[in-house]
Amino acid sequence: MEHLIPPGKTKTEHRDAVAMPTQYTESLLKYDNPVLVSKSTDRKSPKGRPLRVSPQQSADSTPIPPPPKPKSSLTDATKQESEEILNAILPPREWMEGNQLWMQHVSSTPCTRTDVVHLEELLDTKLQQRQARETGICPVRRELYSQCFDELIRQVTINCAERGLLLLRVRDEIQMTIAAYQTLYESSVAFGMRKALQAEQGKADMEKMISDLESEKHDLKKQLNEQRAKCDAIEKRENEKRQVEEKKHMEEIQFLKRTNQQLKTQLELIITPKK
């Protein structure tokens, strides 16, 4: 196993002088320097603590131990337990670069008030740099605030593990609620798309029905005009026929009247000599 920090350089000098691996991504969550875990192409995922390399360890074959500090066994056990809880809450990230396996643990360094102020300033800077929207749904803003909340969980967990675990429950509940809303949104969008497609299909069918009805209406109007023309022709013909019949009837009446008058005159002539 090999560490990034070469002999003779501090962590800060090495961070400023040497570029991180290409897969390294900046985050508001404070991490230790990446550690080269393995060069083998067979990836052995370091799920436990044995593969963790301390950032203060040198790359020499004979590492120089840090100066002895008086610590009780109880303090060491508490610190180790706190680190284990911290790694359980915020697991180390790992990635493959070529045939090298890199791993990066969250920092277990306690924070100060200056660190919190710097975190707030860094959050504002990242929001401006990545042009996050101030209102509405914005994945960039959500990602940055999620990283900021993880950093706050890290800072709280170092001082009080129980409080960090409670904040973890709050974070998981928020993420679960957001996931539920996202699922609801996706299902509503899918439902809306189905309804829109059904409406488009129904619109095409309705337009076809309207076209058919318009064509049928045109045919019916044509038939109506033809029937009206026939009706007008029949009415005209019948009027002419009625006029002819009426004229003929009047002529017959006049003929019968003249005939009646003539018969009456003849009858009067026949009756008159007898007197």
Rank of each mutant, 00 (worst) to 15 (best):
S40Q: 03
V37Q: 15
L74H: 11
V53L: 15
E97A: 09
P67M: 07
P34W: 06
S72N: 09
P50S: 10
K71E: 14
S40A: 04
K69V: 04
K47H: 08
R93Y: 03
L74V: 06
T62N: 15
E84Y: 05
T109C: 06
V53I: 08
E81I: 00
S40N: 07
K44T: 01
P46L: 12
G98K: 12
V53P: 06
P50A: 04
P66Y: 06
H105K: 06
S73Q: 15
T78K: 14
W95C: 08
T62K: 15
S58C: 03
K30G: 01
W102R: 10
D76K: 13
P63T: 03
R93W: 01
K79A: 13
Q56A: 10
N87G: 12
T109S: 14
E81P: 00
W95A: 07
R49E: 05
T75W: 12
T41K: 13
M96A: 04
M103T: 03
R52H: 03
T41D: 08
P70S: 02
N99W: 01
P46R: 14
M96Q: 12
R52W: 01
S72W: 10
P68L: 13
H105W: 07
M96L: 11
D32C: 07
H105A: 02
P50M: 04
Q104G: 02
K44F: 04
Q57A: 10
S61I: 00
D76E: 11
E94N: 10
I64M: 11
P92T: 04
K30W: 05
K69T: 01
P66Q: 15
A88Q: 15
Q56M: 09
A77K: 13
Y31Q: 04
E97R: 09
L74N: 12
A88F: 14
N99D: 11
G98A: 05
S107I: 00
L36M: 07
A59P: 04
R49H: 01
P65Y: 08
K39D: 06
K71I: 01
I64T: 07
P92D: 09
S73G: 03
C111S: 14
K39H: 10
T78L: 11
Q56E: 13
G48L: 04
P67Y: 08
P91Q: 14
T62E: 15
L36F: 03
K39N: 09
Q104T: 00
L90G: 10
E84A: 09
K44D: 08
M103V: 00
K79P: 00
S54F: 05
V37D: 15
M103Q: 11
Q56T: 06
W95G: 11
P65C: 05
I64A: 08
M103N: 05
T109D: 13
D32H: 09
N33V: 05
M96K: 12
Q80A: 07
S45M: 10
T112A: 04
P65V: 02
P68K: 15
P55C: 11
T41C: 05
Q57S: 09
K39L: 06
P68Y: 14
Q56Y: 11
